[in-house]
């Protein structure tokens, strides 16, 4: 098991955002967490990434606890979170953004090779390497954000709402890349509002509501579940 989250509780001040969440991800799997706005998806991911500290519960990555580690150490262990809203470095060039993705690595030659690899996944970025990140279009920024996350060569890639606010054409492109990564054997934890697309690509899924996991199962099961259908798949 690559990631095991047990009874996770997270507070913002006095307000409890997560009420004991448990789920796991197996090596090589693509797992999705679906849920509506404010259900606690992003909170869960930020806690795994080390930006929020859990009140209770355990996060185990490859068998060891990561809940007390700072964010940069978690990246070094092999978890990479591509955050909601892209959050690329807008004043840095595209190339610098990618280099920052590999900031924990020391193997310069391999980093250069990986830049080429990322550019092969997102050919749109090729001609814009020296452009400031902030000048890119929304879709290009999303590609850059994913590319930047891949530059740490994560064993577990976490994507938070990668298709949010993108035109259908770009959504397809993003999901094609996720499919490629999946076929290459990357483990992916995907959080999406677009539950239909997420369940198409994922092996398994969890449904989260107001800080609790309310349902889990294989994608086929969830897709055919009536409650999921009416709440997340538009009937």
């Amino acid at each position: 098991m690559i990631l095991q989250v047990t009874d996770l509780e997270v507070f913002y001040g006095n307000i409890q955002a997560l009420h004991g969440i448990s789920f796991n991800v197996e090596e090589g799997e693509t797992v999705t967490i679906i849920g509506s706005n404010g259900a606690g998806k992003s909170t869960t991911l930020l806690t795994i990434a080390g930006l929020l500290k859990p009140g209770k519960g355990e996060i185990k990555y490859l068998g060891t606890s990561t809940k007390t580690l700072p964010a940069d150490r978690i990246v070094r262990r092999g978890i990479s979170l591509c955050p909601e809203g892209r959050r690329i470095f807008s004043s840095l060039t595209v190339y610098e953004n990618l280099i920052m993705g590999a900031v924990q690595r020391r193997d310069r030659k391999k980093i250069r090779a990986d830049v080429k690899w990322v550019l092969s996944l997102f050919p749109d970025l090729n001609s814009r390497l020296d452009q400031a990140g902030g000048t890119l279009s929304g879709g290009q920024q999303q590609m850059l954000a994913i590319g930047r996350s891949l530059m740490s060569r994560p064993k577990l890639l976490i994507l938070d709402e990668p298709s949010l606010g993108l035109a259908p054409v770009l959504v397809n492109q993003i999901f094609n890349v996720i499919a490629t990564l999946k076929n290459d054997g990357t483990t992916v934890l995907l959080v999406e509002q677009n539950a239909r697309r997420a369940l198409e690509i994922a092996d398994r899924g969890y449904v989260i509501e107001t800080g609790r996991i309310t349902m889990e199962g294989s994608s086929t099961f969830l897709k055919s579940n009536d409650q999921v259908k009416s709440a997340y798949l538009g009937g």
Partner: peptide, 11 residues
């Protein structure tokens, strides 16, 4: 540029 993102990439 972005404190949160810089922590997420592992700076």
């Amino acid at each position: 540029d972005d404190l949160t993102a810089s922590q997420l990439v592992g700076i």
